[in-house]
Design a protein around this nucleic acid. Sequence first.
DNA 1: TTTGTTGTTTGGTACGACCAAACTTATCTA
DNA 2: TAGATAAGTTTGGTCGTACCAAACAACAAA
Lengths: 235, 235
Amino acid sequence: MASEKKAGTRAADALQKYLEEQILSGALPEGSVLPPERELMTQFETSRTVVREAITSLTNRGLLENRPRFRPVVRKPGYDAAMDALGGIARHLLGTKQGVSNLYELRIFIESSLVRQAATHATREHISKLKEALEVNLAAIDDPVAFDQSDIAFHSIFYEIPENPVFPALHRTFTAWLSQHWLEMERTPELNRSNYEKHCAIYEAILERDPDRAEKLLKAHLNSSWEDVEGTFVF
Amino acid sequence: MASEKKAGTRAADALQKYLEEQILSGALPEGSVLPPERELMTQFETSRTVVREAITSLTNRGLLENRPRFRPVVRKPGYDAAMDALGGIARHLLGTKQGVSNLYELRIFIESSLVRQAATHATREHISKLKEALEVNLAAIDDPVAFDQSDIAFHSIFYEIPENPVFPALHRTFTAWLSQHWLEMERTPELNRSNYEKHCAIYEAILERDPDRAEKLLKAHLNSSWEDVEGTFVF
DNA sequence: TTTGTTGTTTGGTACGACCAAACTTATCTA
DNA sequence: TAGATAAGTTTGGTCGTACCAAACAACAAA
């Protein structure tokens, strides 16, 4: 073999590092496909085993998307993709009531603070977004699916306020991980109206720049939602 | 056991799924070691390639711990392990100043709320823990390494208050991901004393059950720490 | 009993081969 | 000519084998 074999460095790691740099630097743009394995193999004077190991590893780390029998597609994972991967790892933690409870408590904790922040720092723009979301809420009261979406949309606005991409990713993670439990529950127009009114109350507290009341209302809102769904858990 | 070979499923994926079930169900207890690769290979009538692919994948997902040249050890990852794995995925997000900044902002956000909660809900026990931590702080002012540890220990107490295992895991993640940047900075006894005094001020605000002041002091503390370290960043 | 040596097990790396799915083209039919 | 069909090519998935080096186990020597 012509390539030098440094002790301690694995060929697979070297290739992986090279590909990672190519992806992160943009030389391999997002959405593009990797060269065929055999081409990489000749290019790097190595075996397909090595190439495939590098590809698998990068796939596991979310930098490649690898459908069977297709060429790997380059992905530059953001916070969302990272949280997705986290979901795969922590899946079994959500398989217990305790796990779901822990996660929901974290959600309440974070969203409470976000609502406080909304009450103190929300711009006119955020507030009008909230108002629009409320109108969509109201319009969707009789449509369970649409109301769910508008419900999520309302809450998501709070996660946009810090202008930190971690927060929207967090919100999507919460809804993705928790939604399945809420799907079990029957949603009546009465329940939707009740939630809509709670949203309105929170909105008003924000308008009045009253963080304590806004936080209290949100906590009550989320806690009652938890109580609604808690009984339906099946593991 | 005869392996069922469903059409359309990759052998590696099937084996991975099987092992995952064995681990999560407890059939393979935590801490036990996997059979040798060659044994799995014969058991499942497959090749070592497939066995190894399944093992690496499970290792990446945190269900196995795989020191080179040793048999893989079964791990049932908790919140800490999940966050560790997340670190591997999101590593490149922390390679930019923006990424570190986003994460630090999240830390400030969460810790601020924790301090608020401490000011309103801390038990006598928590408060005495904080007091003890302060004393350790003071005693370690002249020892950079020891002070760092006591600093982390002081902050960690806030993460224990909600009695939700997610929070301590979050704290460990924050310190692990961010600490490397702080290591670059020189720590003088004067700086340590300044930090100690800020801790004291926060402690007193909590004693007086003043969440607003406690939050404000913590934010100032963390922000000034950010400013101290920001200039030393090298990427 | 302790230490050093040796043989075996086992994981790490690598190569080449075959298969089946996807892709490409060339051909045939309407 | 256009579209469907069939043959050939590419390419990822799997497999068997081989070799190496580190870990392990058994045994011999001090």
